[in-house]
Amino acid sequence: MPLNRTPPSTSGLSPSKHNSTLRDLIEDDKEYPVTETPKVKQGFRNKRRRSDEVGDRLASFMVEIKDILESFKNEQKTKFDKLEKIFLAVDDIKKQNGEIQNSVDFLSQKYDCIVTQIGKLESEKQSNLQYLQLLEDRLDNYERLSRATCIEIRNIPTVKSETKDSLLNTIIATGKILNMSIQPNEIKDVFRFNSRDPAYKTVLVDFNSVLTKERVIRMYRKTSKENNRPTTEKLRLTGPPKPIFISESLSSKAKRLFFFTKDFANSNQYTYCWTSSGKIYLRRKEGAPVILIRNESDLENLKSQK
């Protein structure tokens, strides 16, 4: 607690005594120091305390700001690293897209070239098909002309010791059953060729003229209508009795077409189906117009007309 001391009066003291007394006081002060509280204005003390508090708060605020900035910096760095990776990935994707686009352009060019080549090949194919059809028609005509004098006889049994002379005699005997005379000099050649049944291989007879061939076919059809068709029994041939069939010798193409035409006639109520001079004809009934069948398209057209 501060003490207010009033210094003793020095009046009436000699200088020496006064100095001695002052020294004593000073020594006493040294031995017993007294702290005096200076008078301070009340407002100044309060202002200084608020300044310290503001400073502390400011320092704390700066630390928080520093932490926030540091955290924000780290967060932004992390985001930047992610964005950098994304940008790198995007660059890779762009490069890949560029390569893909180049590949697509290359393939598109190749595709256009291939389409062009296919168009050319298709055009060549059509030309080749037309040419092949032309060659096929010519070959069929040549084959038809070469068979113009030929007939085929079926169901004549095959004999092991058979010769051309024995076959020739069988043909002459068949002519007698047809009420016609066939002379040996009217036959150019006679032979067998393979068929489904080896025991009854088909006999092909090649005459010297188309007239003789046509006469044999005509007489065979006449006897068939009269139920006097030749048989193996009438020819006195070995084996069970079988009817003998005589027909024109058709080309390979005509045989195939004739097979389809007969099937069409049976399925669509056509009474007549026959061949003449290597050509195929249809007639629905007696007195109906005769239809020439040139190819399978003609049969399709007849189906569509029903």
Rank of each mutant, 00 (worst) to 15 (best):
N227K: 06
T231P: 11
T231W: 05
F245R: 09
F245S: 09
E233C: 04
K234H: 11
P243F: 01
P240M: 03
R215G: 05
I244F: 13
T231K: 00
R221Y: 15
K242Q: 14
L211W: 09
E214I: 06
L237H: 07
M219F: 04
E233N: 07
P240K: 12
R229Q: 15
S209V: 02
V216D: 07
T223L: 11
K242F: 07
N208F: 10
I217S: 05
N208M: 14
Y220W: 07
N228E: 02
S224Q: 09
V210R: 10
G239Q: 04
R221W: 15
T212D: 06
T232H: 03
G239P: 14
F207Q: 00
P240T: 08
F245W: 12
L235H: 13
K234L: 09
K213R: 15
F245L: 09
K222L: 14
K225N: 15
N208Y: 10
K225M: 05
T223Q: 15
E214C: 00
N227Q: 04
N228M: 01
N227H: 05
F207W: 02
I217M: 05
P230L: 03
R221M: 13
V210D: 14
I217C: 06
L235A: 10
G239H: 03
K213D: 00
T232K: 04
P240F: 00
T212V: 10
T231G: 06
I244N: 08
G239I: 12
L211I: 08
P230F: 03
S224F: 06
N227D: 09
M219N: 12
K234Q: 14
E226D: 12
G239C: 05
R218N: 13
R229N: 12
K225V: 14
V216L: 12
T231N: 06
P243C: 02
R236A: 07
E233Q: 09
F207M: 01
I244R: 06
R229E: 10
T223R: 14
T212I: 09
I244T: 08
G239K: 08
V216H: 04
K213H: 01
R218Y: 13
Y220N: 03
R215K: 08
V216W: 04
N228P: 00
T212F: 02
E226S: 10
T238S: 13
K242V: 12
N228D: 00
I244S: 05
R218T: 15
